[in-house]
Structure formats: C-alpha cells, structure tokens
Amino acid sequence: MKKTYNWAILGCGKIARKFAEDLGLLENAKLYAAASRSLYNAREFANDLGFEKAYGSYDEMVQDPEVDIVYIATPHAMHLAHSTLCLKHKKAVLCEKAFAMNTSEVDQMIKTSKEHNTFLMEAFWTIFSSKFNKVLELSKDKDLGQLRFVKSDFMFKADFDPDKRLYNIDLGAGSLLDIGIYPIFRSLMLLGKPDSIKTMANIRSTGVEDSISMLFGYKNGAMAVLTSSFESSCNNETELCFEHGFIKFVREPEFPILIEKNGVREEIYFEQPKGMGYELEAVHVMECLDKGLIESPVLPLSLSRELMEIMDAVRKDAGIVFPKHD
C-alpha cells in the first residue's frame, strides 16, 4: 500500500486552486492544510476544496509537524523566501515556476535543500506529460533528419493593472517569467542551451515587459523563435521543423500531435489525464519521497538552474530589470 502524504498549499490563488483540484484525484495525497496571509482566505480555500486545516500565516503552517509536502503558489518574487522557510522546517517543497527570480536565488534554494537534506523540485508539469514526452521521442526519429527550427508561442490577453501580479514589477511581473518560460523550456529540451540570444521586448513605462520575442542560435545552425505576450491571443502552437518533415502540437492534451515525415502526415491522439496534468507532478514528488530522494531524477535541480540561466540571459539582452532582485 502506498504511503499517504499530507499536502499543504502555501498561497491560495488561482493556480493553487487548480493544483489542489488535481491533487484531490490522488488516493495517497491528503488535502491537509491551506495557508494564506489572510486566515479568511485560507479558510475559504480549505472549505471549498476539502482541506482539513487552514492557517493565516505561513510560519504557523510550517510548524505543523503533520505537514509532509508544501506546494508553493505565491508570486515569483516570493519563491526564494517561501521555499527557504519550508526547507528549513524539513518540509518537502514543490515550488511553482518560474522557480525564482534569477540564478542566484535558485542557487540559494538548492543550497538550502542540500543543507537540510529536504526535497525540492520546480512545479513544471510539462515534463511529466505523456504528450510532450511523445514529442521528444518523435523528434529523435532519424527519418525526420536534423531539427533545424523550433517555433513556439504562449500568449493571452490580460488587462493592464500595475497592482496585480502580472504587471506588478515587485512581484516579478512580465510575460517572460510567467509564460515565456514554457517556450524556452521546450527549446531547451529539444535543442539544448543556446549559444546566442537576441530579443525584442515591449517594456511599459512601469518597467514591466508585457511582450517579448526571442531568437536563440546554436552552433550547429539550428534556431529557436519564441514569443510570449499578455497583449494578444493565438493558438499557442509549437512547431518543430526538420530536414524532412515537421511536428506541430499545442499544450492541451485533447488535441493531437501532427507529424509529417517525407510527405506523409499522421495525427497522434492521447488519452486525457484525469485532471489538468498537475497531478502528474504531485505523483512524481511522492514517488521520490517514497525512495528517500531529495531531488527529482526527471526534473533535476540542475535543469531548473539551466532554465533560469537562459532567462537571465534573455532579460539581460532585453533590458528587463527587477530593481529589488537584480
């Protein structure tokens, strides 16, 4: 019989609610505690989703000896402080992406995890998706030839409000850290770390970037063209262009992968997961803890660090600055 783990949610916003709904699908995951800076919000969240306890402070929650794993769903700018708080209290941590604000903060999180011998992983559900892993498998088909281009977008229209998370520079605002990380992750997994980076960004008077296009170059001649934006909508498609064909896909599991190889097209469909896919990362965290691991072999901390290094380089080229973190 699988061990049951008591989960706590730190930060009771929209993404936390989606994660908790998926977490509730797992037999060995107990919805134990919800923590917010507001006890009212924590109680409302806990009551809506079926958590056993509600805490009006994060400090109080981490002192609960029954908490096994904490899912951190606060804004990027708070990830270092909140991960550190949990790790120092020996609570396993699954921290939302972007993992932190920069590589220096990621290094501090990794150091704390090792010093306290406590599990730490970035919440990047894509790497556990059967659809994305099928794309990685298909991309290695020798009949397709060499991968020459990766084109990937993630956009949605958001109202400008400098006080809200997406546009508040003190919270790590901007499309790059929020959704641009997805196209960058795909290019990293498919082409590796780029050798050169060129960017074009739209930066508001408040210093927040709301749209950015990135061109990654590689020594073998391959390129990645990546875009994220809060200013427009599109079908958020990723296309891999090979010497002898292409692969197209969108992140939603209900849509097929389209592959063309030597003029022949095929659509590959997938059985939809029980939830939105967030349950897959939760399952993996518990499997790692069953084995006594403090780091995931699928999403190692070195990969999260490499991803952040790329985003640091993108920000440097684009002139994106977070005054309280840079």
Rank of each mutant, 00 (worst) to 15 (best):
V70S: 14
I294D: 10
L39R: 09
F128I: 09
T4R: 15
R165M: 06
S129M: 10
I259H: 00
C12N: 05
T227L: 05
L39N: 02
H116L: 03
E243L: 08
E52R: 07
H76S: 05
L31H: 06
E271V: 15
P162E: 13
K324Q: 05
D161F: 09
V62F: 00
E279N: 06
N168M: 03
F119W: 05
D107R: 12
S229D: 09
D22T: 10
K291S: 14
A318L: 09
A8Q: 04
K324V: 00
M101P: 06
N235D: 13
F270V: 07
M1I: 08
Y218E: 06
V70A: 15
A73N: 11
S130A: 15
A222L: 03
S304H: 04
I181H: 10
D317Y: 12
G50Y: 04
K193F: 05
A33Q: 02
G13F: 01
M276V: 14
H116R: 06
P194A: 12
L147Y: 06
D312V: 04
D210R: 12
L176I: 01
E271D: 15
C12I: 13
L258K: 12
K53W: 14
S38T: 14
T112Q: 02
I310F: 13
S196C: 07
M101I: 01
R305Y: 04
N262M: 13
K2C: 04
Y167M: 07
F246E: 15
A222K: 06
M101F: 01
V106P: 00
M189D: 05
A158R: 11
E287W: 12
R17D: 13
M223N: 11
I259Y: 10
E309M: 13
F19A: 10
K3W: 04
S38Y: 09
E44W: 04
E281I: 13
K88N: 15
H244M: 12
K219T: 08
S38G: 05
S38W: 08
V93M: 01
E105L: 12
M308L: 08
E254Y: 13
A16N: 09
E252W: 07
L147V: 08
M101Q: 05
N6T: 03
E231C: 13
G292L: 14
E60R: 04
L258T: 14
S187I: 11
N262T: 06
G277L: 07
E105Y: 01
Y32K: 06
M109V: 09
D210E: 12
C234R: 05
V298N: 10
P162H: 01
A224E: 13
Q272R: 09
E209R: 03
I212V: 14
G277K: 03
L136I: 14
M1L: 08
E44Q: 11
G11F: 07
F156I: 01
D170N: 00
A100F: 08
R315Y: 06
L49Y: 07
S104N: 14
A282H: 00
D153V: 08
